[in-house]
Amino acid sequence: MSSEDGRRPDPATDAFVAHRNLLFTVAYEMLGSAVDAEDVLQETWLRWAGVDLGTVRDHRAYLVRITTRQALGRLRTLSRRKESYVGPWLPEPLLTSPDVADQVELADSISMAMMMVLETLTPTERAVFVLREVFDLGYDEIAEAVGKTPVTVRQIAHRARAHVAARRPRGTVSADRARAAIAAFQRAVETGDLRDLLDLLAPDVVAMSDGGGVKTAMPRPTVGAEQVARLLATGVALWGPVATTESTQVNGHPALILRIDGEIDLVVAMRLDEGRITGIYTVRNPEKLTHMGRETAVSL
């Protein structure tokens, strides 16, 4: 609130609103779920509203600490939910504005490829890595947020950094190369001609689809160029006659939306390593497509 509308300023609300996009991004990178990240923000606000601001030196740091603690608790609950999830679990895609792609560090940190890497960390490792490597928080601040000593946090950060470095995409991929890969997929669906798309597949490409038990999807990842090529040929034969396609920006990178009867049926994102497609991620679970109707604001 502000004095412009005739009401007294509310410092707590002003501080929360000022940092909301940052807090959402922290929660989303920790959880891989926009729905859960929004719930974490609600919980953060409820706790922040009860804080005596006179005792808070740094509003941003305090809010990040609350958000991290709430996200850690929810991440452990989410981990248990994933154990009974039907089929592969993929992060929830976000429709992002074109300017996010220009912020290379932000785009890389929320890319579907990086979100998949973060899934391989323990909850505490993920929190420490995100806060340190993405948001550049000090070890003392992170220690308060995760309930560990600064020395322990340094050790966790080192371990998480090495783990991620061994698994993150190799080499820098230009925006043009990423758009070309998505365009090849789009042409395949629209024309049935898969040649350009298949030429881009790496020998060790992995395809995963997430239907959540609600929509038909692969029960397990498909590995290898030959196997993925057969899968794509089957998919194109099914989608081509009925789907309309739209290239867009998802998680700061080029992606493809397929609609059937005007409704979003699936979102396709890719991982590229040294110019070749090494990951194809298809999200069909309707519960994970709710943020595709509007752009989601993210920030560092």
Rank of each mutant, 00 (worst) to 15 (best):
I260Y: 03
L256W: 03
I277M: 06
R294Q: 10
D261A: 14
I264A: 08
G275F: 01
M270R: 02
G279S: 06
G293A: 09
R284H: 06
Y281H: 04
V283Q: 05
R259Q: 14
S299K: 14
L256H: 02
E263S: 15
R259V: 12
I280Y: 05
H291C: 03
V268L: 15
L256S: 01
D265W: 09
G262D: 04
G262P: 04
G293M: 12
V267C: 11
T282E: 14
G262T: 06
I260F: 03
D273G: 07
T290I: 10
E274H: 13
R284N: 04
G293C: 09
G275H: 00
R271L: 08
I260D: 00
H291S: 05
N285G: 06
L266K: 15
L256P: 02
I280A: 03
P254Q: 06
I260R: 10
D273K: 08
I280R: 08
G262F: 07
E295N: 11
I257L: 15
A269W: 04
I257W: 07
R276Y: 04
I264L: 09
R271F: 03
L266M: 14
L272Q: 03
A297F: 06
I260K: 05
A269K: 07
T296L: 00
E263G: 12
G279W: 03
M270L: 15
E274G: 05
V268N: 09
A297V: 11
M292D: 11
E295G: 14
M292A: 08
L266V: 14
R276K: 11
T278C: 12
V268H: 12
E263A: 15
I260V: 12
T296G: 00
E274I: 00
S299Q: 13
L289D: 13
L258K: 08
R276D: 04
G275C: 05
Y281R: 05
T278R: 15
D261T: 07
E295I: 13
K288S: 08
G279C: 01
K288V: 06
A255L: 03
V267S: 10
T290H: 10
V267P: 07
G262W: 09
G293E: 12
P286N: 09
H291W: 06
R284C: 05
R271Q: 14
V283W: 01
S299D: 14
M292V: 07
M292N: 10
V267K: 08
G275V: 02
H291E: 05
P254G: 03
E287V: 11
L258W: 03
D265T: 13
R276E: 07
K288I: 04
V283T: 13
R259I: 09
S299T: 13
A269L: 08
A297M: 07
L266F: 12
R294P: 02
